[in-house]
Design a protein around this nucleic acid. Structure first.
Lengths: 363, 363
DNA sequence: AAAGACCATTCAAACGTTTGAATCACAATA
DNA sequence: TATTGTGATTCAAACGTTTGAATGGTCTTT
């Protein structure tokens, strides 16, 4: 009979089985400093017993007593966004090396879930909180509780330093500029731009960068070729939006030789829209994305894009939160941190030199 | 001064602040049956105090005392596989309605991590375990501990009923047949097949289904047009593999008008390989995928594929594990369950009728 | 007026750990 | 011999909850 009555194997079980006291067993199995004083034979015996019974220390009891959970909450606004995964990987490796565990929650773009999980993370005594979100609800009052309970927090994907929250995100302004620069280096002058949706914090700085680079390269942006994605939560809506806007720009009658899309999914939508109208990418029209997510890499043509160093961003977030947890002693000491990661231009097959010949592509 | 010395707000704090005993406060805040006996005024007062202090009950202490964690471990073999996300969503919604929380871990295809997290889930007293894995390591001895601790387990993505583990997966045989049937319905007779890698359990039944459907439609499969993916862990290796094999099949000199790829990523690789060689999809050659993941939907041409009802599978896994948790009383009572979900043919733009004219496409 | 019934609240033990302090046996020192 | 030291082990309290049993009340009921 492996387990006594119902539940798990406990320290008491191991103690009984090995003939030593609970204390000794605990000291041995948790490798406390005192375990140096325990006779080698005892150590071995206890360990063997524990192994045989399949003992696993109860993390809850341990956390309760040790007053530390070794846990960092990770709250993703939408895990299905391919953008999240590399960040999570970065976080995971950052935490792992410090023996911390990420507690991952997926809010699925729903505010109710977001608040509920925030609550849960507080209840589970996450020692710190990493929020992955380009969109986030305005001042969920739960955040006040996070403060009240003195839990450090950092957000990846948007700048909330203005509200005193440490933030780490890509330098959208630089990224936008990089994208525009690339297109103009290829000789494009008539460039359609699809801006991000209103609610999204990335939209504006990216647009600023685009304008700056356009100015610097002497390109003028035709306002009639500037579009905007609708503000929908679903990440696939970018694809739909790109598709629809591509049709619109063709229908508008304005000519253009390149499209600078807000993100990769949008770019893929644009490719779809153009292709269906008989416009070839990149021969007739170049298309740029932003983010460098998986679908952009495996599509044909592969999408030229601006890479966000997501992994590194996640890693840095982990490091920062661990640091903040260490020094938590002084409540409001450290000022909130802002990291702007450097974007990188990734040239693939969806962009090409402007064809001077037969360039008049769209109607 | 919101919090007393350092940690979180506790029941004792609320008790002190409200002037009632810890018991009363607990009864009120946890809405225990006894709370009906508590004076309405008291209830309100206690609640207000708790809210004001930002009290959140300590989940660890609660689990310890209640001897139930309301937690199900979800161990994904590789979260970056787009295949996982919809399953997780299904699991999440299934658990949510029962007030259970998924504890998500990502093994990143590494055995060390897999075992480590399995351990962690045991330590955190997950009441049940859902493993998402098409690949899984042979008999990790941790699974013995799972048994020993009497934790119900179910695996999504492969059939382990032979080892007494409940399993839920797509009917690969039917799916393979569906795919082959679709191609032959379109008139294709010379069909190249890319089988899954050796180590992967899906590979064989899918191949069986393909053969059966080929037989039934009177198509003979040329062994020289049957390829196999190498056994690599990285999910993107499917893409690389498809790319390379497409080149190989063109170089082989055998003619073919369709490619049935093992999964969507492989299919996308094939599209890339063919396109780069000047073969048009689907005009010159049709390509089929399997899984219906995001990249297949947003690529152009979009990939015809066999959809796995991932969401439903996740949901079912959640329901099953919850059931198993309920009846856990009798240790080895229930026989292990096997669910084979029905695959669905999704026709998109990567497959088309065989062109009888100028069909001689490849070399 | 005594017994019971009920309401509102509190006591105290328990969940499984960890750990500072205590115990005990025994050898070494003064 | 009495003291000190030390090596091996155990005591007991604490972490923050929950909950069966107990406590005092107040109000009926006979």
């Amino acid at each position: 009979m492996p387990q006594k009555k119902s539940g798990h194997v406990t320290l008491t079980d191991v103690a009984r089985a090995s003939g030593f006291s609970v204390s000794t067993v605990s000291i041995v199995l948790s490798e406390a400093p005192l375990s140096q004083n325990v006779a080698a034979a005892t150590r071995e015996h206890v360990r063997a017993m524990a192994r045989q019974l399949g003992y696993h220390p109860d993390a809850h009891a341990r956390s309760l007593r040790r007053r530390s959970t070794q846990t960092i909450g990770v709250l993703a606004f939408d895990l299905s966004d391919p953008f999240c995964i590399p960040i999570m990987r970065g976080i995971q490796s950052g935490l792992h090396s410090a023996d911390y565990l990420p507690l991952v929650m997926d809010a699925q773009t729903q505010r109710k879930l977001f608040d509920g999980y925030l609550n849960l993370l507080l209840e589970r005594r996450a020692e710190g909180l990493i929020v992955i979100a380009s969109w986030v609800f305005e001042e969920t009052n739960l955040l006040a509780d996070v403060r009240k309970n003195n839990v450090p927090i950092i957000i990846v994907g948007r700048d909330l330093t203005s509200r005193g929250i440490s933030s780490i995100l890509v330098d959208n302004e630089a990224g936008g500029a990089l994208a525009m620069q690339h297109l103009s280096d290829l000789g494009h002058r008539k460039i359609a731009v699809i801006r991000g949706p209103q609610g999204m914090s990335d939209s504006e700085p990216r647009w600023q960068g685009i304008q700056r680079a356009a100015d610097q390269s002497g390109t003028t942006l035709d306002p009639r070729l500037v579009f905007e994605l609708p503000a929908l939560a679903d990440p696939e809506s970018g694809f739909e939006g790109g598709c629809r806007l591509a049709r619109e720009m063709l229908a508008s009658g304005r000519s253009f030789s390149a499209v600078l899309a807000f993100d990769d999914l949008t770019a893929l939508g644009v490719v779809r829209g153009l292709t269906e109208a008989g416009v070839r990418v990149p021969e007739d029209c170049s298309v740029m994305g932003f983010d460098d997510v998986l679908p952009a890499r495996v599509a044909t043509p592969s999408i030229s894009t601006i890479r966000q160093p997501l992994n590194e961003m996640g890693l840095k977030a982990a490091e920062h939160i661990l640091h903040a947890v260490k020094v938590k002693t002084s409540p409001t000491s450290e000022p909130s941190l802002l990291v702007k990661a450097s974007p990188e231009l990734i040239v693939r097959s969806s962009t090409a030199l402007r064809q001077s010949k037969k360039k008049g592509k769209a109607s």
